[in-house]
């Protein structure tokens, strides 16, 4: 069965791009969210196999990308989250990984980099 992915990014363009890349590789896009709060809610509802998470997004109830990673990890300590963000500064990468993210991809990316990261975290 295809792995189910929840895509989290405030930019419609980026959600569309990630969805196209992943669908072509046989993943199922089970949902999309455009802020951290929505991501946490949808995670609980959809139970995806993997989440792609942007960092800089409009803050809803003080939840940005890294906070959303922490919230999701509270719901499901086994959650598999890959950060996809334009902000690639060392301190932020460390913060996201400490929060529980499994990988960190800096935009712009080669499609193969995203596919490999997601395959690796879902153990395909």
């Amino acid at each position: 069965m295809a792995s189910r992915v929840l895509i989290v990014d405030d930019a419609l363009f980026m959600r569309r791009m990630l969805a196209d890349i992943l669908k072509k590789e046989g993943f199922e896009i089970c949902g999309e969210a455009e802020n951290g709060k929505e991501a946490v809610d949808k995670y609980g509802e959809l139970k995806p196999d993997v989440v792609t998470m942007d960092i800089v997004m409009p803050k809803m109830e003080e939840i940005d990308g890294v906070a959303a990673v922490r919230e999701i990890m509270k719901i499901d300590p086994q959650a598999k989250i890959v950060i996809v963000s334009a902000m690639g500064q060392h301190a932020l990468v460390v913060e996201a990984i400490q929060a529980g993210a499994k990988d960190f991809i800096v935009k712009p990316f080669q499609p193969s980099r995203v596919v490999e990261a997601i395959r690796r975290v879902v153990g395909e």
């Binding site: 930019a11 419609l12 363009f13 963000s85 334009a86 690639g88 800096v106 935009k107």
Partner: peptide
Amino acid sequence: SALKEMVNIVTG
């Protein structure tokens, strides 16, 4: 959205 994302990435 594409323009904004481009600016986001270039700023990043």
